[in-house]
Design a protein around this nucleic acid. Sequence first.
RNA 1: GCGGUAGUGGUGAAGUGGUUAACACACUGGUUUGUGGAUCCAGCAUGCGAGGGUUCGAUCCCCUUCUACCGCCCCA
Length: 439
Amino acid sequence: MRFYAEIVMAKKTFQRPKGTADILPEQSVAWQKVEAVARQLFSNYGFGEIRTPMFENFEVFARSAGDTSDVVTKEMYDFYDKGDRHVALRPEGTAGVVRAYVENKLYGPDHEKPYKVFYMGPMFRYERPQAGRFRQFHQIGVEAFGSKSPALDVEIIAMAVNYFKTLGLKNLTVAINSLGDQESRQAYRQALIDYLKPHFDDLSQDSQTRLEQNPLRVLDSKDKKDQEIVADAPSILDFLSEASQAHWQRVQELLDLLEINYTIDSNMVRGLDYYNDTIFEIMTTDENLSGAATIAGGGRYSGLVEEFGGPDTPGIGFAVGVERLLALLASQNAEAAKEPQLDFYVVNLGEGSDAPALKLVQDLRQLGYRANRDYLDRSAKSQFKTANRLEAAYVMTLGDSEIANHTVSLKNMESGEQEEIKLDQLAEELARVTKKGDK
RNA sequence: GCGGUAGUGGUGAAGUGGUUAACACACUGGUUUGUGGAUCCAGCAUGCGAGGGUUCGAUCCCCUUCUACCGCCCCA
């Protein structure tokens, strides 16, 4: 006994890994809501759920050597497994889905075009936690393959907007931009460098390095000085190739047709390198969430499927950050979903009441009621207090006399009325009583 | 990877280099032996994130470390 006590005192404590969270029952109610709405709505739009592994071969994410995004270069949770395979926890959903699309030959004739899927689950990024930023976080995302139609771009943006509207969110803005195709981007990139070079010394430290590695990034610098310089920079929209220009125009026309409000932000760039043509973000204007304002982002990508060894196939998708969405929902919705209350609480008194109470709650649950009981042998008063706190509609009391008579005392907690009912007619009696009680 | 702020019980928190770490909420028990939401009474941190150090003595001083929060980078 003594030994044990000492072991307990010296007991090691554990903390969850940095940047992770335990989602407790009170919170998971909201998670389930958000997921359920997505499943329902996305399926209305013809998307089926896909579930891919949470880890992939490292190369799935770090395909092209030219990938400059931090997401793959420095934020990846990668390691060698016992078979010396280089694997990585997924930092985002698209790569795995594209891999699955190609590996399962979903581009084949047996499958609908466009091929539309959605996914939800944890993503991992090794980065410093802060507002709306975690090492394990969750995304709900969609991808659609096999159509270049601007109507698909618009439908997907509309679906995202619809999703947030269904959840009751307000103060959202949709920002769109076009990155053009390869050709457009090449031309623009050079023009931007030519413009920025003379201002090199005035640019922030960060932007100076950005200029070398990924000049487009300079466009959304947060530095004031940078922003002034960028204000007069050439716009990508003036460099779109004919095809990209036509696509871009059509997207806007169709958004107007659906009466979706949007703003064009020609300085918007997205974090992953694979995007081209239409890109978009959905942001909140709530001040207190400014650090994590973007709750969904996505766009078109055309080279990806080919990079994974599939046929030349266009794709488009977006992902919403679930933690950010939930934070926003919480800030806009003061009253959180309450835990469901109870139908019956079983107060059990005395030594012989344990087994009958076990049987009784079990029977009640089998009849479809929400039932709970006391397991701690507490006083009648305490048990009633608990019943009250749990908002039980009725309390059933099981003591020596009830057990002897094969009855149970049933008390309506609202009216205070109490009566004895026979255990062998439990179902009938409850049907009678609860019906009366409800109306 | 860089910068800032913080870390006291289930929760919100006060506090000081020195015998018992305020107060409130919550919780538990009691206020006539089996009946709730009010009142009253009592209990509830061998402990002040962790590990070192300074000191006769540290929750309070110093160092290291961990974690959280915020910002940069980057991103959902």
